[in-house]
Design a protein around this nucleic acid. Structure first.
Lengths: 178, 178
DNA sequence: CGGAGTGTACCGGCCAGACGGTACAGTAGC
DNA sequence: GCTACTGTACCGTCTGGCCGGTACACTCCG
């Protein structure tokens, strides 16, 4: 069963988001996943392998979203916006948080683990630059989205609900009107 | 001399930006600052105190910038944009990198150390929302800027030089035209 | 004037504990 | 008998933090 594998990956992000990066230890992850430490090391022979696994999963999601985006102008930019930021402030955005967690974990434990992510991200950026709309608009929207989930992750003054929607509309209009 | 204190703070950000979060140890910081470990611990009795010091300094800069911004419409938003992102892609943006480093260090070592920063940031966000321009525009610009320095810090597909300027112009126009 | 004492800034060795990782014997299910 | 674990004992290293010193400037008192 790859079930346990996924549970371990989930557990790692849970620990990271709940207790902070400092607390991301093999013991803590194993405990969270209700797996023995031996079991964890059976699936991920090292901590690096664990965070590499987190990044891999993230890369997979990215790739899927990238290919799933349509061909109409602004399609990719819109997908990127919607994937990270719901129109309404549902405050969950679980997928985006998971992404950030993986990013975070990697940059702490093993910056090299980010390499595959960098490549997919670069591909995504290229896709945005050729999205049938002004590349500057697409890039600005992307950066805003990145800033958005960062602000939520670190809880640095994320836009209040009312403003949240207005910013979302603004970005959407930006995409449409270019 | 508070000279040594500042040198230690600088050393901490240097180590973090150069060698990654993993390498941010008391020994490494002391070595970088050419101070003994005892000397470090004289100024900062714990690692938490060290990152708290980093955040404090950042908060100070924020406060200064906040009061220094003028009163004309969009002044604060423009300051925020210019502080983090040079019009040309000078690739340095040292101040912004320093900010990120402090943020990073805090979220790893002691998430609670971010509290004072959260408050200043919230104040800054309020200031942006009352900047004489559409609050949604101000917020969107802010988020884009946040995303910008994040992309540079983690090296996740930061906009290429040519695009960099176009995005900068786009954001500036957004501020002016609202 | 001189000696004693006080506070600041810093040195550097050391230790306890945490953490990553190994090893290995055992087991439940297919 | 193989996969997918469990459970535990253990090791070496790294790291945060403590502590006993030292150098030195300054001050207070007789």
């Amino acid at each position: 069963m790859t079930d346990t594998r996924d549970r371990l990956l989930d557990a790692a992000t849970d620990v990271l988001l709940r207790d902070g990066a400092q607390a991301l230890t093999l013991d803590a992850v194993a405990r969270q996943a209700q797996v023995s430490k031996g079991g964890l090391l059976y699936h991920f022979p090292s901590k690096q392998a664990l965070v590499a696994g987190m990044v891999d999963r993230l890369v997979g999601h990215f790739d899927a979203a990238l290919t799933a985006a349509g061909e109409t102008p602004g399609a990719a930019t819109r997908v990127y916006l919607q994937a990270s930021v719901e129109p309404r402030n549902t405050a969950t955005g679980a997928a985006a948080d998971r992404a950030t967690a993986a990013l975070f974990a990697a940059s702490i434990v093993d910056p090299d683990a980010l390499r595959p992510l960098r490549e997919v991200y670069q591909a995504w950026q290229r896709r945005l630059e050729n999205d049938g709309i002004d590349p500057a608009v697409a890039t600005a929207v992307r950066l805003a989205v990145d800033g958005w989930w960062l602000s939520r992750l670190v809880d640095l003054a994320p836009p209040a609900p009312g403003l949240h929607e207005r910013v979302y509309v603004l970005l959407t209009n930006l995409i449409d009107g270019s």
